[in-house]
Design a protein around this nucleic acid. Structure first.
Lengths: 240, 240
DNA sequence: CGAGGCTTTGATCTATCTCAACGTTGGTGG
DNA sequence: CCACCAACGTTGAGATAGATCAAAGCCTCG
């Protein structure tokens, strides 16, 4: 209940780790490079700015007074979010919102090209994701949560040009087990156990912990949506 | 994990329980009266319609295939939400979104008066609430969740004209214990226990279960935001 | 004033957290 | 190029918050 692998403090040490891109192509929209762990400042952007992720990965998160963190969303290339004042309060204003890069990440500000109606569309997408996430947190079990997360991440961070033959797909996991835990409302140990259960049951595969291959997408889908009694969900029984 | 006090099916039985208001004042915007338990149909409104709650209470919820329900938000008078197409999909499209009236509720369609920018503002408010709710579900404890909910509901459903003298406030609780449970990601028994713990510790007061008086707002606030070690949070020890 | 639906309370159970130890890996400097 | 270190990951055993099961009370509305 207190996983702090997002070392937000690092990003506050100074401007060194938070760099405006020096390699921005001339004439393109204002663009920034963030290193892994760097906090995306609301202050870096215009009030109400919208930002598009060009490459990399950003986590939006909220923090309670006592340091507990909830990751609210994990966004990949192409996703747009509000970096300026779109950090709203909610049910109870005792929370603060932030964003961190989970990998080397390129962001570009896109205010000019988006009108109010486009802005509403973006907010609506984020709202849909947020609601699905709330449902996940409120009533899904550990395997259901994990399967849901894997499917979402596989869509957002595919590693292309592999295994087209077998019906599998791989993706880059930019989050640590602790980050996943903070996202899914569980502990890092439970995340690890569940991933390894999936692995032992042949649903996924991984050598290094940050590249995951999905072997049985259909099964994961059915676990994710709550149909499913079977064994993929359980620890295999110990042999006598 | 399977509280089904929202009898959504009722609303589908026929048009009887879902009534367009026959008592709409002439010249005012299109207005509808829903009875308690009636489902708010996307189909009743224009595509992309926005709806304002005039009086009453509406719960937005999502359902998993197997019937588990997550209440995503509880909205009171003055709140605006999307009744038409603003029912988006999210992380994993295996969820469906709906809305029910939790009391006799008057809604009015307000499309004309809201432009794209106003729409963005509304979505942003809902997004803020949704994110705070995700944080609640993901990392708050039972007393923290309950305190947060009480404070939100007290703001939205105040019963005026009482207890101005003592620094207390009362509100109408339109939700059952089971509804609260579905909202806060816990069980109805746990909700009941926590409310009665608060009552025994003098934080709140209630005779009939649906009218609650807040006696110690500050303490609730500090519980809600996660500061707080003290005893209000715990069952009182059994006496020897 | 009776029935059905809420609510409360108690006793038990269990999924998940906690605590702890050990294994892996990738980056750094010798 | 290799050895070491710190951060990350895995695994086990035990503890616990909250769920589940069960049984009364109590409103409230017809």
């Amino acid at each position: 209940m207190f996983n702090s692998s997002i070392t937000a403090d690092d990003a506050f040490v100074g401007p060194i780790r938070l760099q405006k891109s020096s390699r921005r192509p001339a004439g393109s929209p204002e663009s920034f490079i963030y290193l892994r762990g760097a906090q995306v400042y609301a202050g870096s952007f215009q009030r109400g700015a919208l930002v598009r992720i060009v490459t990399g990965c950003v986590c939006l998160f909220q923090t309670l007074r006592d340091g507990r963190r909830q990751i609210l969303d994990v966004l990949g290339p192409g996703q747009i979010f509000g970096a300026g004042q779109i950090f709203g309060a909610g049910l109870c204003a005792t929370v603060s919102l932030g964003a961190v890069a989970m990998a080397e990440t390129q962001l570009e500000e896109i205010n000019g090209e988006i009108d109010a109606s486009g802005r509403a569309d973006i907010l609506q997408r984020l709202l849909g994701r947020s609601r699905a996430h709330a449902t996940l947190l409120g009533l899904k079990t550990v395997p259901e949560k994990t399967a849901t997360a894997l499917l979402d991440l596989a869509t957002q961070f595919p590693i292309t040009g592999v295994d087209a033959a077998r019906n599998t797909s791989s993706f880059k996991l930019h989050l640590t087990r602790a980050d996943l835990a903070d996202w899914l409302g569980m502990t890092l140990e439970t995340v690890s156990r569940c991933l390894n259960d999936f692995k032992r049951n042949g649903l996924i595969e991984f050598d290094r912990p940050s590249v995951i291959t999905i072997l049985k997408r259909d099964t994961l889908l059915s676990i994710a949506s709550g149909r499913h009694t079977p064994e993929e969900t359980k620890h295999p029984e110990r042999l006598p």
